[in-house]
Nucleic acid binder design. Structure first.
Lengths: 233, 233
DNA sequence: ATCATCTAAAAAGTACGACTAATTTTGACA
DNA sequence: TGTCAAAATTAGTCGTACTTTTTAGATGAT
């Protein structure tokens, strides 16, 4: 969505996510039209989209009511972006990291059962590139290959619900680097586990793939927990 | 979303999900207005919502293009409903069951670390009701308590991404009963595992909670796999 | 005084028409 | 044949008029 309409969506959605409008607050479409500087037509489109995300509810003779955040579609990519852009950044990152920790081991297991020969080849290749960039301490290139690796595993799981989470995983991995939640150079263990996942999937060894991926995810969760402890305590 | 606008959304969205429009097909808003029997204003709102779900993309001088299903927001509740209502029902149910199998063990682990005393009490209570309805072979009541149990665990995980999946879990559990994918009476093992999860969470034993929940989910996945084998082979 | 019922107002919902803007196609010209 | 300009096409935006639903308030009867 782009143009004036997408802009209005971005502003109103962002405002709601950052808490500019308190839960239960009632807005009127004409007010919104004035505030956003657009026609009521555009406001209606925006409201409809936010409604489909569970963020607002529109009722005749009442207005547009901001819904409690428990109703929001937490998996909506746009909403995730709003949350990551706002104050709740670290909370959101923790939620996503936990989600990732749950998903990826199962994805690795399924990938071991379902990956095509081509996907196996790509996995092995990416793992090798991870090893080499880890040795040369090129963190940027390492991150790119890391994201690529996990995207490939999710793709090989052959489950749309898992495949779609590649953006989430990419966000978590990037966030880790961006907030310096990981060592200055990749841990040798972590690199080895990636190789192990690639091998296990290629050999169709589901248990081994799941275990290795669990090791990767657990380590990431520990790093994340340490960070949040450092932030709050 | 309700009224004529919600109706139009439901019809167009449903048509796209069931494959009435092939991927890449281009629609024109005026055609859609005629087909749906609504004004272009309403069509625009509907298209905007479908656009935010990744199902279509609108471009000037081109039209409204149906996007490949890989782009669709697989977690959108409305989209899940459309898929469950159409031909892809069993595929969707399998995807959801796998997702659930990944999520719930981690949710149980987190719940063991975070559940409030009140939530623990509720869990124990629901587990006891599951035991009694299992004994009296009241499958309907058992299903209701089963759904309630898993919703409580997800809530206690204190992670919005997990909490939101309670509808998915409910759908999987209901689907199991509806398609007769489970025994005529609940397996004693399954009931015992639920009690174990409740106890482990109440005692703050994360590992034990995770293991017991894994047992529950694994069994459900096995049942689901058996079904699909029976369908296709 | 209280309850039911009717009425009026308020807000979103819908439709339509006019115009704008962007993008692709076409075709003329070099 | 290539380039650039014009035309055609389609979504985007706006404003207005009207409809429908829902709530609040007034009115009236018991």
């Amino acid at each position: 969505m782009q143009g004036i309409s997408g802009d209005a969506l971005d502003r109103l959605g962002g405002a709601i996510v950052t808490g500019a409008y308190s839960r239960g607050q009632v807005l009127r479409s004409e007010e919104l039209a004035e505030w956003l500087g657009v026609s009521r037509t555009v406001v209606r489109e925006v409201v409809r989209v936010l409604e489909s995300m569970g963020m607002v509810a529109a009722r005749r003779r009442v207005g547009i009511t901001v819904q409690p955040s428990a109703n929001w579609d937490a998996y909506n990519p746009q909403l995730i972006r709003w949350r990551l852009a706002g104050d709740g950044r670290l909370d959101q990152l923790r939620s996503l990291a936990e989600l990732r920790g749950a998903i990826e081991p199962m994805a690795a297991r399924l990938a071991a059962q379902r990956a095509t020969a081509e996907q196996c080849g790509e996995l092995i290749g990416v793992a090798m590139r991870m090893v080499s960039t880890a040795k040369s301490r090129d963190l940027t290139a390492f991150l790119a290959h890391d994201i690529d690796f996990h995207r490939t595993v999710l793709a090989a799981s052959n489950n749309p619900m898992f495949q779609q989470l590649h953006e989430v995983v990419a966000e978590v991995l990037s966030g880790r680097t961006h907030y310096h939640l990981m060592p200055d150079e990749p841990l040798p263990d972590a690199v080895r586990w990636h190789t192990e996942v690639a091998e296990a999937i290629s050999c169709g060894e589901a248990d081994r793939a799941e275990r290795a991926m669990t090791a990767i995810a657990d380590q990431a969760l520990i790093e994340m927990t340490d960070l949040l402890a450092g932030q709050t305590g």
